[in-house]
């Protein structure tokens, strides 16, 4: 590159300053409504719990310590916190399974919609978005209505003679999983649909012309091109699943908590706000890791397809 004349550099600097000024309102809003509250949470996580909720302004790392470790209540021995680790593992595990389930049901659905004629697409998309008009709580209770002992499924199976007494489905991990997969399914369908819709079907035809089998074509042509949509959908499902609160509470019957419920408990009956704050940040960090993984996946992909 040749040297740019000074005037041009000045113009560039002025341009940069102008951009900063224009971005200021957005930056202010992010600072005040996003960064600042986060700082408050971090601050609370290193304070001492007050006797009746709230915090005392005394520095303490006890909250963070209790996220992963515990002193035995009865003989003071130190160990990894079995309860918290169980809950953490359940949260991550159920969220991964939820993502997998929504993939299994969401991708074919999105494919189906994207391959309809344009007029029909709008109608099918409209059907997918209808659940968003309804409150999450109502939708969760609707699922409960399907699987409770006297619910639709049990009565159907009984009538068909498949079972001779109702199966206990409510209040199990299966119930939580089903509830979450149902609630988050549209979040998978929409981004996948957007990706499939942009897919140029002449590429698949070209694949067939070159004697690719259907499966091969799917694996080597279609999936790589709709991958960004699948990844975006997975993140959109995985992240809210991790922090899910209402669904595990209703479907799980309170017998097996997830992270969201554990955090709520610390701010409520547990009266241990610093631990609650530390757990909240742990959850945020988990999400951050998932997002970093996501950016790695997508940017790596683009690099290769351009190369």
């Amino acid at each position: 590159m040749g040297e740019a004349p000074n005037t041009e550099r000045d113009a560039q600097n002025a341009d940069a300053r102008q951009r900063w000024r224009l971005a200021l309102p957005a930056v202010t809003i992010i600072m005040v409504f996003s960064i600042l509250p986060l700082i408050v949470v971090v601050l609370y996580s290193v304070l001492t719990p007050g006797d009746y909720g709230n915090v005392r302004w005394v520095f303490s790392t006890e909250g963070w310590f209790s996220v992963l470790f515990e002193r035995d209540i009865f003989d003071d021995t130190l160990s990894l916190s079995d309860a918290h680790l169980t809950i953490l593992a359940r949260s991550v595990g159920l969220s991964l399974l939820t993502t997998a389930l929504t993939l299994i049901f969401g991708v074919p659905t999105a494919w189906f919609i994207a391959t309809r004629p344009p007029a029909a697409r709008a109608f099918w998309l409209f059907l997918v978005t209808i659940p968003f008009w309804t409150n999450l709580l109502v939708r969760t209770i609707a699922v409960q209505e399907m699987i409770r002992s006297e619910g639709v499924f049990n009565r159907l199976f009984l009538w068909l003679g498949l079972i001779d007494q109702p199966i206990q489905m409510m209040f199990t991990n299966f119930a939580v999983l089903l509830g979450m997969a149902y609630v988050f399914l549209p979040l998978m369908v929409l981004p996948v649909f957007a990706a499939v819709e942009k897919f140029d079907f002449r590429l698949a035809e070209a694949g067939y012309d070159l004697y690719a089998s259907r499966l091969f074509c799917l694996r080597k042509v279609i999936l790589p091109l709709v991958r960004p949509g699948i990844i975006a959908g997975s993140i959109l499902v995985f992240v809210p699943s991790l922090g899910a609160y209402v669904t595990p509470r209703i479907m799980g019957g309170g017998k097996s908590m997830m992270l969201g419920n554990l955090i709520e408990m610390q701010f409520g009956q547990g009266r241990n706000w610093p631990l609650g704050a530390a757990l909240s940040i742990t959850l945020t960090l988990l999400v951050l890791i998932a997002l970093i993984y996501y950016t790695r996946l997508t940017s790596g992909r683009q690099g290769r397809s351009h190369g």
């Binding site: 918290h84 809950i87 419920n261």
Partner: peptide, 19 residues
Amino acid sequence: TCPADVQEIYTRIWTDLTK
């Protein structure tokens, strides 16, 4: 309402119970 140290044990028992 229990004192804070007992409350902490209550919370731990409850967490164990509902984990």
